[in-house]
């Protein structure tokens, strides 16, 4: 079970505002986290607490394929992203690096900035502890659950490949 306060954004949050390209001359998660969301919300890095949950509208993570975007969000301490919809490259990047995400339009619309939210990743249940309302996200298909269970694509491939000689 994940628990944290909601940090809410709108529609079409693109990877350029999640982590501007001027910081992509490094791949260090901590350095990336220091600039996460900077162009849309300069206060983000000060207000985010470990475990917080990012909530957004449609097409979250659109734009570039930079994995630096979910890496920056994860390294900021965000435990899960709930959105109405995700852009597809961001979606697979998040799954691949083991950053939990949930598509749940109703919850994404209802939850307000600052609400306390609890998420059960195995059942897909989302509870807004501030309002008492609960929601259910569609569960991941079995293959993705396997990926998530393995801890991301690196671990999944490791298991499948064994050790290369």
């Amino acid at each position: 079970m994940i628990r944290g306060k909601a940090i809410k954004y709108g529609n079409n949050i693109d990877t350029d505002v999640i982590i501007p390209a001027r910081y992509l001359n490094t791949a260090d998660p901590k350095e990336l986290a220091a600039h996460c969301m900077e162009d849309i919300d300069p206060e983000f890095k000060n207000k985010v607490q470990p475990g917080d949950i990012m909530v957004a509208g449609t097409n979250f993570g659109c734009g570039s394929s930079r994995e630096h975007a979910p890496i920056a969000i994860k390294a900021s301490g965000i435990s899960c992203i709930i959105a109405e919809t995700f852009a597809r490259i961001f979606y697979r990047n998040a799954i691949n690096i083991g950053l939990p995400i949930m598509e749940c339009p109703e919850a994404a619309r209802d939850i307000k900035d600052g609400d306390q939210v609890a998420v059960d990743l195995t059942t897909g249940e989302i509870a807004n502890l501030t309002t008492g309302k609960t929601y259910k996200a569609a569960p991941f298909p079995p293959f993705m659950q396997e990926l998530i269970k393995a801890g991301g694509l690196v671990e999944y491939v490791k298991e499948r490949m064994g050790t290369q000689e």
Partner: peptide, 10 residues
């Protein structure tokens, strides 16, 4: 299609 770095690695 575009993918991320971990996909590229795999």
């Amino acid at each position: 299609t575009g993918v991320g770095s971990t996909d590229m690695a795999a």
